[in-house]
Amino acid sequence: MKHSTFLLFSLPSLSVMFLFIAIPIVSVFIQSLHIEHKQVIIVTENCDPFGCETTTAVDTEASAKLKEKAPLGKFNGFKTYSNRMHFAFDEVGEAWKSSDSFTVFTKKLYNYPLYRALSFTLTYTFVVTPFVLFLGFLVAVGVNNLPKMFKGPTIFASLLPMIVTPLVGSLILFWMVDGDGVIGATLQKIFNDNSLSLKASPVLTWIMLMVYGIWHLMPFSFIVFYAGLQTVPQETIEAATIDGASKFQRIRHVVIPHLMPLAIFITLILLMDNFRVFEPIIGFRAEAHATSISWLIWNHLRESAYPLYNAAGATSMVTIFGVAILLLPVLIRTWRDFKEKNKG
């Protein structure tokens, strides 16, 4: 295809990605380097017979002028990244010096929003992903062992948790585990403890969110693995059976190697999706005990009266950096494949 035709065909697609994905990333970075102008404050001294009194007032005109001159705010360098909302270098150094053990140090670290969000996001990502892979594989093998008539209904029922809107899905579960909901109330009865609440304890909140994550994403790995199982070469399985391989050995030595590329694909998608976990925290109203990086950005932009653009920008850059680290192995691999293909 000629360059000019290629450009004509792909121009709408490329320009929309450039304008709304590439440029925002750059602008987020620039935004993170600036800080909002301080309001211009006029101090006036009013003197009357009873004494002098100073009043301070915001000079709106001067503030607006300042904002017009430099809409991004004052250049702040990387200070937003190092403040206590983010990496909190000074405070962490202080904590390191004053803590006598590592546990005390991590506890102190947990007080800073970014570290708190990172710890949940990473735990969530690296707990949910393997569970989803493993359980999805088990269900796929299970369905594969059942008569054909079970296949359709199982797939239909499995698709629902995956396809349902994350916020809606988490709300449905949240209402069930609520103290008055069916699961929550039953648990209270079983443990004979009326104050037992999944929302009140940090550990239970984390577990609840991760269970939701597994419920939501397992269908995806199940369906991909199930499709993969249909393509396992039957001759190899038969040959292995004749050679005396047990069912388990057949799975271990024939099926799993065959499904390995699929497992890598699923892992990649799961890592990307789990790293952006956000809606469940809103749905479960879990922000008191569990915050994710995406939730942190949302909070910077939404919670205060004025959006904290610099904080949101800095957190976004940290997130993008995290995604880059997650993706790096895949990118290197694809690049190698591509180079080899071009050689041959």
């Binding site: 990333i25 952006r276 976004s316 995604v323």
Partner: peptide
């Protein structure tokens, strides 16, 4: 592929 991995929230702030 890289754009696909971007958490949508990071773009919103831009």
């Amino acid at each position: 592929l890289i754009f696909r991995a971007m958490p949508h929230m990071t773009l919103i702030s831009g």
